[in-house]
Nucleic acid binder design. Sequence first.
DNA 1: TATCGCTACT
Length: 457
Amino acid sequence: MNKALDRGDAAQTNNTDPRILHARTLKSPYTDRSDFNNLITLYSKSNLLSYSLRVFNQIPSPNIVSWTSLISAHTNSPLSLRFFLSMLCHPTFSFLPNQRTFASLFKTCASLSYSFTFGLSLHSMSLKLSFNDKPFCGSALVNFYSKFRLPDYAKKVFDEMHDKEEVCYSAMIVCLAQNSRCVDSLSVFADMRRRDVASTVHSVSGALRSAAELAAMEQCRIIHGHALVAGFDRNVVVGTALIDGYGKAGHVFDARRVFDENVSVLNVVAWNAMLSGYAQQGDKNSVLELFHLLETRGFSPDEYSFLAVLTAFSNAGLASESEKWIEKMRVRYGLEPGLEHYTCLIGAYGRAGRLEDAEKIAMEMPFEPDAAVWRALLSSSALHGASDMALRMAHRLLEVNPYDDSAYVIAANVLSASGRWDEVAAMRKMMKDRRVRKEGGRSWIEVKGEVHVFLGG
DNA sequence: TATCGCTACT
């Protein structure tokens, strides 16, 4: 930890109002620029952002550290990008951004949905200044590409980085996990261990998320063992990822053991992970029991808690129960049901064989049906041998998601069961025609080129 | 010479 943070933390723990320090700084004849720079950071850590800008404006001749302090004080806000542009456009001084400036800016771009091209041009600048292979910049850049769903670009940045330390690996592992590249994510985790780079709660929870998505029991166990050795097993996030992983792998007893061992530190997210583990097993009784316990312990159930309950009901085909809980969620808990809750409701009606009601809900609910809704209706109609409806739903599903091969598989099954071979063949042909050229995106080289053009380089 | 990056529940 560096000096500035030490000072900042000390001031916070002593409950010193930064404004007192500010007044002293202004009065003292010994004040230099670094005192102002520290104040900017101190104010932002105390959630007094407007004062950060005020201090900055009081600095007689701000330097790059002042600018970077101001920019990072406004991380995740568009103001941070504006300040950066002001700095570049400054008429009298020429400030060259450094690695820390870029690290903050990449973080901001990652958090703003509209700042993709801004991030690309920053990447180009950092390439020219040779910052993108530095650990701090590189990890922030990996995260940036991760948030914009470009894991291959992130991997390219990662591969070109020098001195990859634990945060770089964490960022990459988490990126691949968040983008459903589970096997790659686990292999980077393995690579990290081979190279003796320390793991962190971030990399461990990222790897666990991948193992969970793969429902890979063996990997969960291995990472669990590692978490125990590394002393991360009491961490809430790691614990939650373990509960989720064991649950998804179908080992609810292992999930429950982790849950019980850590219950004193767990929050509602962890409870939800346990609930959804039971729900995926179709263990409705355990879900309801745990839901009740959650309330007894003083937690408030949220949308995810209700989703777990409704998932269980959907798997069990409990239509009227689902209806009741949706109502309860809205009226007694003040939570508005989302698309996923309606999808469960539709699934429950469908599984119960009330296909028309299920379709009616899909048409009348306050959301546009998505692929999951059509898939629920498709599997329900297939389950009950309603081949006409199944065919219709398969078409709707393919309209929203032309690449969904499950549409073909499920519809083909029910159609062949009724001997409708011609329609199976037609379906197959339609799938082929729909399979338009997959646009895998432009190559890395192309994007790099574009970035240089963008900056006139 | 102060400023920086990565986690869990559909």
